[in-house]
Design a binder for these strands. Structure first.
Lengths: 210, 210
DNA sequence: GGTGAGATTTATATCTTTATTAATCAGCAT
DNA sequence: ATGCTGATTAATAAAGATATAAATCTCACC
């Protein structure tokens, strides 16, 4: 009604917020319209189906994740441990701004083969084109050969980092909801974890016999 | 119909399977009945509401998790690192038999304050009664004082272990679905990760200056 | 064999959701 | 003013979901 702002965009934003918080099944186009303050039919007018709308939100978020992962990795010639610190830090800071994102992505991929396939192809196009895995592998195994870090499979290495980083943001909202913690406490928690994760990974892969 | 087995139990089992795979919102009482092969009204006859049925499944699973976490922790007087190895191993093996459980629990707690509160109280009754956190705290900080491990906050320590262990089983089904891996490969993956996680944690908290 | 209790099904009311269609509205071009 | 176009709403069809009530079935027990 009031031309406050393009309703198509408002719908997209409302959808993003609701989908992120309540998932696909837990969000109805009626909810979305209600939040925007427009008619429910308008949601379908712009996006035709709920799945369309969802995919638009979903893929956009996925892109953000991938871009953030790659960026600090590609253009760096710092020492290995510094690079590691930077990558973990960058990824961590990104997720801190999108607390519910990791969970959302995982949630909506599980139990939906079609979406999973979509994501997988997207991911492969992205990482393969830039050869992200190859880069990590090269760097990591070089360090292994230099004996600065213990022998470790690159897949394991990546999973270690991702597990620690991502899981944090799955646990965080639960912790916050339960303890009703303030924004300050939340920030404190995040900072605490960030440093610990970096320390744990670096100590955990360093070659003790070095 | 055929008195193959108590239908109430069959319904509970079917509900468990469907809820675990598709979540609360993604499962209908009709689905559950269909899987059992009985009438949809029977589901309500036994459990009255879908939420009731869900909570029964949910709390039972939660109990399993808590019990498994506490058991190897309480009665052990091995050396700290061995104990750690055992606890991680036990938890890990348990989760390997309930691959979708961690995700399910997290999924259904987020965005549902009531359930979250329920779980929180349950958890507190359980851990507080047995003072699980206190035990871990005592043990960990004793090691810190002995300088066998670096100074580390107990909360951080627990989160490290839980992150690495749990996230693995969130990633596993995705990995399997995508790569269509065989059961053997799945087992291989699990074994690979188990050893790595234990190594990473132990190296990661060991006092290097020791 | 009849009866009563619990198990199971049929039928249905009510609600919600997605999606479509037709109607209305607003503004711009002529 | 008229009419056109895109934006928006009203109305509603169709499908699916939860839940309940009543009917039927089963079978142990007398």
């Amino acid at each position: 009604m009031a031309k406050e702002q393009n309703l198509e965009i408002q719908i997209l934003q409302a959808a993003e917020e609701l989908f992120l918080n309540n998932g696909f099944a837990g969000t109805s186009t009626t909810d979305i319209a209600k939040r925007v303050g427009c008619n429910q039919a308008l949601v379908h007018y712009y996006f035709r189906t709920k799945e369309n709308l969802f995919l638009q939100v979903f893929m956009a978020k996925l892109d953000m994740i991938l871009k953030t992962l790659q960026q600090p990795l590609l253009n760096q010639d710092a020492d290995f441990f510094d690079k590691l610190r930077n990558v973990i830090g960058a990824y961590y800071d990104f997720l801190a701004n999108y607390t519910r994102l990791p969970f959302f992505v995982i949630n909506e991929m599980l139990g939906n083969k079609d979406r999973l396939t979509l994501v997988y192809e997207h991911f492969m196009n992205n990482t393969m084109r830039n050869n992200v895995f190859g880069i990590i592998d090269t760097v990591v195994q070089a360090e292994v050969r230099k004996h600065t870090i213990r022998p470790i499979d690159t897949v394991n290495f990546i999973l270690d980092v991702v597990s620690l980083t991502v899981f944090n943001f799955i646990a965080l909202p639960i912790y916050c909801d339960v303890s009703g913690c303030t924004d300050d406490e939340k920030q404190h928690f995040l900072k605490l974890r960030k440093d610990e994760i970096i320390t744990l990974v670096i100590n955990g892969i360093k070659n003790v016999g070095n």
